[in-house]
């Protein structure tokens, strides 16, 4: 079983929508909505949050995503009422609810432990963290564009850094579910892998690239299993991720 995720929102619709969106990229991960009051109104429910934590926790831990401030307070209060042993497995992420839930779900799906799932959520953007992340994406892209010209002549060169190209054939490009599958596949290798200059194991950076159908991707890999990684990722891109 994987780490579970609880989505706490003032609105039942928001919580259910976030669960639906994140679940699309994370088959088999327990993602549970706790939105609205007990009467179905706008607000948060201590009982709903407590129940959702119980449903999401398979023993591997739970990461909670919240929207506005009082959702965090309700979640914290629910934690106060757990047994010490249960509470130790549950954390509240300081992350934007949508981006955080998506990143957490993918990290849970790829077998990340509780802290890895938390870290994925918390680096998913929002406020200064988002600015830092976007700056990182731009820096990565800048590095990629300068380095690609110098490396192009030596596709297999230096300390075993390999470069391959692949063209996106599927309709939605490297977005949402395909991006998640790409990250899942890349995460299975030890090699350091980049796609168009950004970390191929970071879902949000890949999605931020916005590569659509017809885009040519430059994949690089460095490490003992670099060749196998590139073979697998190029094959995945060529396959169109199962889309038309």
């Amino acid at each position: 079983m994987s780490v579970g995720i609880v989505v706490v929102s003032h609105s039942a619709k928001i919580a259910e929508g976030v669960v639906e969106l994140a679940g699309q990229m994370a088959d088999g991960v327990a993602i549970v909505a706790a939105g609205g009051t007990d009467e179905g109104g706008i607000g948060t429910s201590f009982d709903k949050v407590g129940t959702a934590i119980g449903e999401a926790d398979s023993g591997e831990g739970v990461v909670i995503l919240c929207d506005l401030g009082s959702a965090i307070m309700t979640a914290e209060t629910a934690l106060d009422f757990l047994d010490d042993a249960d509470r130790a497995r549950v954390v509240i992420a300081d992350a934007p609810i949508v981006e955080g839930a998506v990143a957490a779900a993918v990290a849970a799906r790829t077998g990340g432990d509780r802290d890895a799932v938390l870290a994925a959520a918390q680096t998913a953007g929002g406020g200064s963290a988002e600015a830092a992340d976007l700056a990182g994406v731009q820096a990565d892209a800048a590095t990629a564009s300068t380095s690609s010209s110098s490396d192009d002549g030596a596709a297999v060169g230096g300390a075993g850094r390999r470069v391959r190209h692949a063209t996106l054939v599927n309709g939605s490009g490297l977005h949402a579910r395909p991006a998640a599958e790409f990250v899942k596949a890349a995460s299975g290798f030890d090699a350091a892998i980049t796609v168009d200059g950004v970390d191929a194991k970071s879902l949000l950076r890949i999605m931020a690239l916005g590569r659509g159908q017809g885009s040519e991707l430059e994949l690089t890999a460095e490490g003992p299993d670099a060749a196998a990684a590139l073979d697998a990722l190029v094959a995945l891109v060529d396959s169109g991720f199962g889309e038309d």
Binding site: T37, D38, G41, G43, T44, S45, F46, D47, G69, S70, M73, T74, E76, T77
Partner: peptide, 12 residues
């Protein structure tokens, strides 16, 4: 209060 108030005042 925690289980019935709903808004921020419940936990507070």
């Amino acid at each position: 209060l925690i289980s019935t108030v709903g808004g921020a005042s419940g936990p507070l």
